[in-house]
Amino acid sequence: MGFERVTTLFRRTKHLEQDIDEFLEKIVEAALIFRRALSIYLEHGASEEFDDILNREKHLESRGDTLRRSIETHLYSHTLIPDLRGDVLSLLEDMDDLINEFEGNLFRFSIQQPDIPDEFHRGFAELTETVVTCVESVVMAARAFFRDIRAVRDHNSKVMFYETEADKMSTRLQRSVFASDLPLENKRHISYFVERIDDIANAAEDIADRLAIYAIKREI
């Protein structure tokens, strides 16, 4: 391996590191946009402002896909991290699913426009906040997998904590929805959205579980 090839390898590596960082940033951004979008929806319904923010989520999802494909192609075409690239590939795809989940949920809100009475707004906002924090924690765990392997466990425990919290909130919210005087179809509709939002935290927890195994494999 000549000097030129070594410098090319390091240049390529730096570029790819930046791509991975950007991809993970996109997930956090997607989570924050989701939180903002939901707040707009609860306040103004499927308004023009909501559509704008949904478009932002769509672009973000598309950029996330492009980054993921580019990273995967580079990893395989240049046979980088041969022993761990299968794990990295799975991790990136799982993380990409989180953006898809955020986007999918916003689309559901836009299409189905559930009628959520004011009394449940706080519950929705709290659940969303917890889910977003849970996703932020799993992104931190993923970053740690790349840079600081022993910190993965710390971030994973946060993911577990927020996922449990999200489950509790989801249950509480659904109980109060079904205890209300709303028509059954309305209750079922709201409950469906509560479950979909909570599912994002469940997906984050699944990723954290797999990350724990990847982290053990990554230890030298």
């Binding site: 390898l9 590596t13 730096k14 590191e17 991290i81 761990l84 790349f146 840079r147």
Partner: peptide, 16 residues
């Protein structure tokens, strides 16, 4: 551990 080297950079260093 203390260098907190990125997995990809570690890969490049390891190759060299």
């Amino acid at each position: 551990y203390f260098g907190k080297i990125h997995l990809l950079r570690l890969d490049a260093y390891t190759r060299a």
